[in-house]
Design a protein around this nucleic acid. Structure first.
Lengths: 228, 228, 228, 228
DNA sequence: AATGAATGAGCGTTCATTCAT
DNA sequence: GATGAATGAACGCTCATTCAT
């Protein structure tokens, strides 16, 4: 895969080959330690061509980040069916997320590790994506809160008004952050622990997130939907 | 800023100054992009002295990782009072963790990001520490499970035997991994979001982890101990 | 002096320029004291190009040794006509040797001095060449011994059998070693003593080696062939 | 031997320890590659002390050369009994030479190889010694020539006049150079070829030098004195 | 559309050498 | 008599980048 040295290809194809190679090398070595030589060689082209198409190492890395971020976002987005209840949506999103990161570990490494270890230009790029995901999760949590209100009415504390968001804004943001962080961490764990599937990782996280450890202890785990 | 350039100091002192500088630079730039020149300059010494005392860039980085890992482990360990119930222990550990990472953000960056982006020699070092923490959390979860059993007896599902562990081993490992990952992620979030204290971060995570989102929705948050 | 700084030359040409410069610098300064900067400058190229083409200082030095060893071996070999009697062959070989070393003193210094002062990688390279020469001389001595036998028959010591080699193996090896050593030493002497030609150096050595000091004293010098 | 770390010794002793160490290291690594650190460590003293006593690397190397040159000259001189005939004197000198170089290989390497591979300051030092030896050998050859005259009278060629030196000056110098060169080369050979004693090396060279290959072929080798 | 040839700048590392004690 | 602490200068090597074709 990757570097069969074929000559005279349309630009778009060559560019993808270069990005493929770059993601691989950046993922393995990190931004600074990766060398343009190695990338060009793995891409099966000469170095000047890389510069002709992608301008500079910085631009190349940025292009990698953008491509991988888009791919990940698209994968998650297309894995979620909007009409479903919040927990189902979250479950599907997590499944899509773990599946994608398992299939594309180097891309995930680029986003999760390598892009964050260097200054503004790159971290900002990845933060944009992350914020999108965090916003999505935040909104799911809010939806869930609204869905849960009816059940909660009986035990609503007196001072609380139904229109108020169930949780203050910062609280929600923190919860989403924690959820996403846990997901990121589990992705690395699932990728390196043999025998852990994307579904299992997603189930573990749903249990953790939805039911809470306390409930788990009391024998009330969150149960994944029977199928699909 | 940096250390005042004083001459002729005992070796041990100089070594600490060097490690301080190194943690700072490694944290900011990453292992590869950090330059020994910059580290030496920030430490207020000449480069040969850095090599005389710490041998090589690799050894210097390893020394940083070890020092920061020890400091973090010690901070968490000394923040937890062993006799308490599991959730209290976890709460205290999280508070200590968030406090330490907030006070020492560059050290935390070295451990969390920089050390993991490069091969075996360094990742192994930090994995050792991480496994220690995960093991601690895993055990807390098990303890909590045992504590929870009496309450759970009434609604115990028929096939379950009291001697069985409440949760299968891999499940527990995944939960611990998720919890630690969430904590790591929240540490970065708390450090960069103005106005979020260590206590708030810990509370957010306890809510998330202990009560679960589901319970939160139903108005049953986990509540931090009143005081201390 | 040195090579005119011309740009954009084919690789093979540049490589020879680099080797020329390297032989010069290595010969003057020795392996360790020679600096790649100086070599590159004398070659009229930038340092990275030297590394691009010749990999490392070690490889560059090895390449120098190999080139000079080949050149010297070729010069000696092509100077000797195989059909002639042993003393004539030796005479021709010595003339070729002294001529070559006089014309290429830095190359000779590299082989004779610099390559031997550093460990295995280089000494082995030059020893291979030297052994070739010693073997050639050894064989000439043996041939001479066989040629000399008829004359020697009259005074042959009784126990000696014609089939026996005239001289035991180690003895022959020692003699060849001495002869080659004397030649090496005379090469340096001829190069630094003004007015000593290659032919004179060769004649001196032939006298020494073939007739022996004892014979010389008795007025029976070995006489070089009248011409050609 | 070498580096037992004893404290507070008189200067002369310390200096000898340093020179011992320096000869060893210089012999092994060469002048440039040898490091003052390694020398100081092997000598069992701190680096500043080496500088206090011997000023600089250059002076230290010079001191090594001088000491080894003196030792070698003294060994050869004291091995030769002046009254004897020239060939006996040469034989004794060679024996002393090969014995000394075999016992002190690192010192010999310093003189023979390392000192010659670097510019003027050191080469001059060793050349002085070498010239002394060459002069000694030259004179022996002249003496031998004078001794040989009576025997040679009968077969003296008509044109030769007794007052003339038997051999022109440059010729003699070349012969001495060749002899010394052969000796130097054989010293290295004897040191690295197992089972070759100093006496055997000396005998090989005497055969070579005194009888000449031609005579050897005719069964008339030079024979070493029976004993002592 | 693509590349062989070439370099300025910098990095990790080491070394001979010197103070201050 | 002896040393721990410290450095300026250089060296081998590599990298991102460009030019001429």
């Amino acid at each position: 895969m990757g570097s069969v040295k074929t000559k005279r290809m349309p630009r778009a194809v060559r560019e993808q080959q270069m990005l493929d190679a770059a993601v691989r090398i950046f993922g393995r070595r990190g931004y600074t330690a990766a060398s343009m030589d190695e990338i060009a060689e793995l891409a099966g082209v000469s170095k000047p061509l890389v510069y002709l198409y992608l301008n500079s190492k910085e631009d190349l890395f940025t292009a990698c980040i953008r491509r991988e971020a888009s791919a990940l976002t698209a994968a998650v987005r297309s894995g979620v069916r909007p009409g479903l209840p919040a927990d189902r949506q979250l479950w599907e999103g997590l499944c899509a997320f773990f599946t994608h990161t398992a299939r594309n570990p180097e891309g995930w490494t680029v986003l999760h590790l390598q892009a964050r270890t260097h200054g503004e230009p790159f971290a900002a790029e990845v933060d944009a994506m992350r914020e999108g995901i965090v916003a999505f999760v935040t909104q799911l949590i809010d939806v869930a809160a609204r869905e849960a209100r009816p059940q909660a009415l009986g035990c609503a504390r007196p001072g609380r008004h139904p229109q108020d968001p169930e949780l203050p804004e910062r609280e929600t943001a923190g919860l989403a952050e924690a959820l996403v962080g846990a997901a990121e961490s589990l992705a690395a764990w699932a990728n390196t622990t043999p025998g852990v599937s994307a579904g299992q990782a997603a189930a573990t996280l749903m249990n953790f997130a939805w039911a809470g450890l306390g409930n788990l202890m009391e024998g009330r785990p969150w149960s994944p939907p029977d199928h699909d």
